[in-house]
């Protein structure tokens, strides 16, 4: 277990909201292996975003530990994080947005730009280097945000519902695209979603969280070969099982 890239142990979190004590996370433990894709699936409002913020180091847990590569977190800057809503900077062109992390790290901008242009070319954004975010479609903007996250060169990427705001067609296209990017770059990804199909299409492992306070309800490996067919009987059966689980825990 000590070889795991990310280790989460016994994480608990409460916070006070309008004088009421909210119990968000309840002794949550899991580990991520390097180079794998893990998806956290849970009902809306179960504390997924809080969990990500703790992993990134933006918030502190009440108790429990997070270890990245054996080192104690929260240490800001060690995990690449893509927040849920659009965070592209409107005053920078696509290339300028893509190299943000390199700029903050103080790495060579020339090198970062060269690398970004290569990725743009490779992943369907070629020719859009000098276009501003407001001129891009929703799907393009999200591709750019994802490329920016990949270019941060952190060992782990946390993606908070990156495709949540897109229409179903764009979403399906981007799922395929994301898988392509990941297969080539082989980063360790932790994706948060409430879409069971998306979880099964993309990941090696699905962690199902319960309603608040979130605890680990199921840790399910998905050993199907990629690319997967969303219509295959196996995938549909697994999806139904996951939805049942979510419905029971959601109680709605």
């Amino acid at each position: 277990m000590s070889s795991s890239l990310l280790q989460v142990h016994d994480l608990s979190k409460h916070y006070r909201q309008r004088g009421i004590n909210v119990h968000v996370l309840d002794r949550l433990s899991f580990a991520l292996e390097g180079g794998t894709w893990t998806t956290i699936l849970g009902p809306s409002g179960c504390g997924k975003t809080t969990l990500l913020k703790i992993l990134v180091g933006l918030e502190r847990a009440d108790s429990g530990t997070v270890l990245v590569d054996g080192a104690q977190v929260p240490q800001l800057g060690s995990i690449a994080y893509l927040p849920q809503h659009d965070t592209l900077l409107p005053w920078r062109d696509a290339l300028g947005n893509a190299i943000l992390a390199s700029e903050i790290d103080g790495r060579s901008l020339k090198e970062a730009k060269r690398e970004a242009i290569e990725l743009f070319e490779h992943f369907g954004l070629g020719g859009f280097e000098f276009v501003y975010p407001h001129q891009l479609s929703g799907g393009m903007r999200q591709r750019l945000a994802l490329i920016r996250t990949f270019l941060a060169h952190r060992p782990i990427l946390l993606l908070d519902e990156p495709l949540g705001a897109l229409d179903p067609l764009t979403r399906a296209t981007l799922q395929t695209w994301l898988l392509e990017v990941w297969s080539e770059l082989r980063k360790t990804v932790l994706l948060v979603t409430h879409d069971a199909e998306e979880a099964l299409l993309l990941s090696d492992r699905v962690l199902v969280l319960s309603e608040r306070p979130a605890s680990l309800q199921r840790d399910q490996a998905v050993e199907l070969p990629r690319p997967r067919d969303r219509g295959s009987a196996d995938l549909v059966a697994r999806k139904t099982a996951l939805l049942d689980l979510l419905l029971v825990s959601g109680g709605a």
């Binding site: 990134v56 800001l76 800057g77 809503h85 005053w91 943000l100 903050i104 790290d105």
Partner: peptide
């Protein structure tokens, strides 16, 4: 937005960097 600030902080940006690269251009 809070999320933009979170993004910068998650990358390990200093307060000065958040000002120069995020808040100042946003206020122009």
């Amino acid at each position: 937005t809070e999320e933009s600030v979170d993004l910068f902080r998650s990358l390990g940006a200093t307060r000065g960097q958040i000002f120069r690269k995020l808040r100042w251009p946003a206020c122009l």
